[in-house]
Design a binder for these strands. Sequence first.
DNA 1: TTACTGTCTGAAAAGGTTTTCAGAAAACCT
DNA 2: AGGTTTTCTGAAAACCTTTTCAGACAGTAA
Lengths: 334, 334
Amino acid sequence: MKSTIRDVAKYANVSISTVSRVMNAPETVVGEKRAKVQEAIEALQYQPNAFARGLIYKKSDTLGVMIPDIENPYYAGLIRGMQDAAVVLGHTLMICNTDRDKERTVAYVQSFFEKQVDGIVFASDSLHKEYYEVIQRYRLPFILASTNAPEYEIPSVDIDDERGAYEAVTHLIESGHRRIGMICFPLDDTISGRPRYDGFRRALREAGLDGCGACVEYAEHRFEHAYEAADFLFTRCPDLTALFAASDEFAMGAISYLREHGRAVPEHVSVIGFDNIRMAGMFIPKLTTIEQPTYDIGYRSILKLHELITTGAVEVLREKLPHQLIIRESTQPF
Amino acid sequence: MKSTIRDVAKYANVSISTVSRVMNAPETVVGEKRAKVQEAIEALQYQPNAFARGLIYKKSDTLGVMIPDIENPYYAGLIRGMQDAAVVLGHTLMICNTDRDKERTVAYVQSFFEKQVDGIVFASDSLHKEYYEVIQRYRLPFILASTNAPEYEIPSVDIDDERGAYEAVTHLIESGHRRIGMICFPLDDTISGRPRYDGFRRALREAGLDGCGACVEYAEHRFEHAYEAADFLFTRCPDLTALFAASDEFAMGAISYLREHGRAVPEHVSVIGFDNIRMAGMFIPKLTTIEQPTYDIGYRSILKLHELITTGAVEVLREKLPHQLIIRESTQPF
DNA sequence: TTACTGTCTGAAAAGGTTTTCAGAAAACCT
DNA sequence: AGGTTTTCTGAAAACCTTTTCAGACAGTAA
């Protein structure tokens, strides 16, 4: 069926070693033969079998990627950056959607191992002990993208979430707002949960605006949860003039809620998001937000994984990429 | 380093054949030995090498997926459906972002072939001759998801775009609108371009509203293009009361334009989109649109590819999944 | 001429698994 | 007991490639 190196050898009347050489070190085979072999390769549409190769080289040029929720627009840029980096390195990506399901995640790691991926990128979710252990057990090189794990020595690429949140809230404060609420991820989420909350708190504290404990509401990851959270929050603290949402999706959920309850954004309430997903610039009003360089995070994380795989180590362990405040229409001075 | 079947055999004091049997047909090996082998497998963290396996079985349990633009939210549901189907079939997906770049696409097909994917899903882009030929040349089973190719006999899963467009426009007409414009994809796009345009035309024609040739504007795939297109369109035809956008992203672009030029949606202009991407329900106003069952399209397409791979044929060649009109806030009676 | 160097090629081993085949051992039957 | 079947196991071949090794041959130097 598929043609093998043997077929090519027969067709060109040479040994298989010669064919192999033509493919991997053409200069070592004399002109005339080389031409014959190349002709045979062309004629038979020969393409070497990656299984056989992998068996010898012990690597697959394939990288595994684990994403919590592919439907979340935040990941689009991340994946795109990874893809582009993979292309320049000649690698292929296997992308898996974990759904934040432990069993499924572990199963994927096993499958990655069996398929001999050269390494794993674990994106944007807390690195639970189980995950750490199963990846360690198979001795797979891996790095964290858009997340990190203070308790382990794992290379990571992300931003400084605490500082981003701090800057977001500071922007609100500098615009004259004094009563500021927050919708945040659960605090046990050590990546976008706790740090963004801490940044929020620190900004308030440094501005002497402490004691706003009641103005925080928690939500899971999606729009609808933020809508509900906004309901709780504004029912409890109706006099808020500004809101820091821990993600753009939260911001959209909150804005929808506000609008449906007769409060205009930004006229009555200013809302700032986080992430700068693509939709942030399309939403009405366009979202003021903290931009995460998702493309770069994706790109850098693949490069870093490559570095780890080839050199066995990594120059800088925890890489923080710069974020940026993007001012659009959903906030205005008080 | 990694333990092999040999290590396990030595550890358990049996031959490698026995170990292999324990893994693939446990009932053929006697109780006591089986236990010993299983113990060895556990102790050594043995996991068979997919390269060696693939060499024998000539299949990888891996499917290749080609997506034009992963950043486009439309694909999120598609990928998710594919992933879920792949999990139940015990397959892994390799997802590639073609960027609608011909060279890159062809390179991916080659890489897929070399990596011995069992089949390819080609999603949501016109099947150019080059693509068809390269996939054919490698004799890779493949199917089309959310697109189709009338000129080739390739299995496909998608919706009836012409009919969807027809229903969208009919909804506008039934709401009393008479001056209806459209922002559509280029007509040489035979999947979402031509058919949606045809549906638009047919609805107008059947309602006796022909001759609105000037009220159509073309755009590439993204928000910004639609914004511009809306500018052209409403400058030329200022008295339109309704707009059919060939995608939700187009609808959002147009609504942004309208709003920034003092026309409220839906009060002044009704806008209907197409696709029902996740953001459609989060946008303000929430988009009236034609829902594509993207998850199901993804899911079914993997099942269909599996069917093609295992049985060599496919029960129904071109599968049309039902779409649905979703009425929200961006349209209202005239 | 002989000896040596260098270039080019093919045979064979290796990589890790599954599977076929044949043989050993056990179980059954007469 | 002898013969026949059944059950279980291990050796070896096969899958496809790369790479090492040694041999063939041509060219160069003495």
